[in-house]
Design a binder for these strands. Structure first.
Length: 111
DNA sequence: GAGCAGGAGATCC
DNA sequence: GGATCTCCTGCTC
C-alpha cells in the first residue's frame, strides 16, 4: 500500500486561522495584518499613504479591542496599545510622521 | 476629552 | 530576557 496518511496529526483545521503560536504575534505584525485586509478592517485602520507606509487608526477603541482579543488581554485599551507603539520609536520599527498627526503612524521599513 | 511622550515595575512567553 | 502590559505624570491638540 501507499505511505500512511497520518490524518490524526497535522490535519489543518478551521481553528488554525488563529493558532496558538500567533498569540505571540508582535504588535507591528498585527497592525500590518489588519492593514492587509481593508475589506475587513479599513473602518478601524487604513493606509493614508501606502507608498510611505503611513497609516491611520480610525477607531482606536476597536483596534485596541481586537488587539486585546488576539493577545487574550481583555483589559487592553488604546492607552496601553499606543504605549507599546511608542516603544517601537527607539527600535526603529514604527515612527510618528514628519508632521505629527493624531492617530497617524508610519512603518520605518516600507511595507 | 482624547492623544502623545516616556519612565518604571510587573508579567508573560 | 525581550516584548509587552500596566500604571503614572506631564504635556499637547
Amino acid at each position: 500500500m501507499g505511505p500512511p496518511l497520518d490524518l490524526g496529526r497535522a490535519l489543518p483545521s478551521p481553528a488554525m486561522i488563529t493558532p496558538n503560536h500567533t498569540a505571540s504575534i508582535h504588535l507591528w505584525q498585527f497592525l500590518k495584518e489588519l492593514l492587509l485586509q481593508p475589506e475587513a478592517y479599513s473602518h478601524c485602520i487604513r493606509w493614508i499613504d501606502r507608498e510611505k507606509a503611513i497609516f491611520k487608526i480610525e477607531d482606536s477603541v476597536e483596534v485596541a479591542r481586537l488587539w486585546g482579543i488576539r493577545k487574550n488581554r481583555p483589559a487592553m485599551n488604546y492607552d496601553k496599545l499606543s504605549r507599546s507603539i511608542r516603544q517601537y520609536y527607539k527600535k526603529g520599527i514604527i515612527r510618528k510622521t514628519e508632521i505629527s498627526q493624531r492617530l497617524v503612524y508610519q512603518f520605518v521599513k516600507p511595507v
